[in-house]
Amino acid sequence: MTIAERIIQLRRIKGYSTNKLSQLAEIAQATLREIEIGKKSPKITTLEKICKALEISLADFFNSTADDVPANQRKEPDDLPEHIQKEIDLITEFVLYRHGIKRPPQDTQ
C-alpha cells in the first residue's frame, strides 16, 4: 500500500473529507489532494501532521492491518445482502468449475 493509499484509507475510516483532514492537519487542501493522487510525496513533517490529525502515531501509519477498519464497518460475507451473497456463490462455483476443482453434478435420471 502506498503512502497515498494509506492516507485515503485512514481518512475514510475516520469519515473525514479531504477538506476536514487538511484543516485538522493544518496543511493546504491542495497539498493533501496532490499527496492523495500521488502527484506529491509528503515531507516527514507533513506526514506527522496528517497522523496527528488522524489520531495515530507515525509508526501505526506504517503498520497497516485489517484491524484498522472498525468492526462495525467491516463487511463479512455472511453480513452481505442476500442478492450479493448469491452473486458471490455463483462466481465461486464458476471459478471452481473452470479450474477443474469442482465438477458439474451428473444427471442420475
Rank of each mutant, 00 (worst) to 15 (best):
V95W: 12
F61M: 09
S17D: 08
T45L: 13
Y16K: 12
L80V: 07
C51V: 02
I44R: 04
L54F: 04
P42S: 03
N19M: 11
K49L: 08
P42N: 04
D79V: 01
F94H: 07
Q29C: 03
Y16N: 09
L58Q: 04
C51R: 04
K14F: 03
E87R: 05
D79N: 15
K86F: 01
I56R: 02
R74S: 10
R12M: 13
Q29I: 02
P70G: 15
P42I: 04
I44C: 02
G15L: 02
G15H: 08
I8Y: 00
L10M: 13
I35T: 06
K20E: 15
A30P: 11
A25T: 00
P70Q: 04
P81V: 13
T18H: 07
S17L: 11
L32Q: 08
P81G: 01
D78M: 06
I8E: 09
G38K: 15
Q109Y: 07
P77S: 07
Y97H: 08
D89C: 00
F61E: 13
I27V: 14
V69F: 09
Q73F: 03
A28M: 05
L96Y: 11
L10P: 08
K20V: 04
T46E: 09
K52F: 10
F62D: 00
Q23T: 09
D79F: 02
V95E: 06
I8R: 15
I7Q: 10
E48Y: 07
P42Y: 09
A71H: 05
C51W: 06
A59H: 13
P70E: 04
Y97I: 15
E36I: 05
I35F: 01
I7S: 02
I3K: 09
K86W: 00
P42M: 14
E36K: 10
T46M: 07
G100I: 12
K43D: 10
P77K: 09
Q106W: 03
E5L: 12
E87C: 00
P77T: 02
R33K: 14
V69I: 10
K43Q: 12
M1Q: 06
P77L: 14
A71N: 02
A28L: 12
R6W: 01
T46A: 13
I13W: 02
P104M: 01
P70M: 02
P77N: 15
L32R: 10
G38H: 10
K86Y: 00
T108V: 10
N63F: 08
E26C: 09
E82D: 06
E5V: 14
Q73R: 14
I56Y: 00
S41K: 12
T65K: 12
K20A: 02
T65M: 04
I101D: 07
P42W: 07
V69L: 15
G15P: 12
K14C: 09
I13S: 03
I35S: 02
P104N: 05
K43C: 01
K20S: 03
Q29S: 06
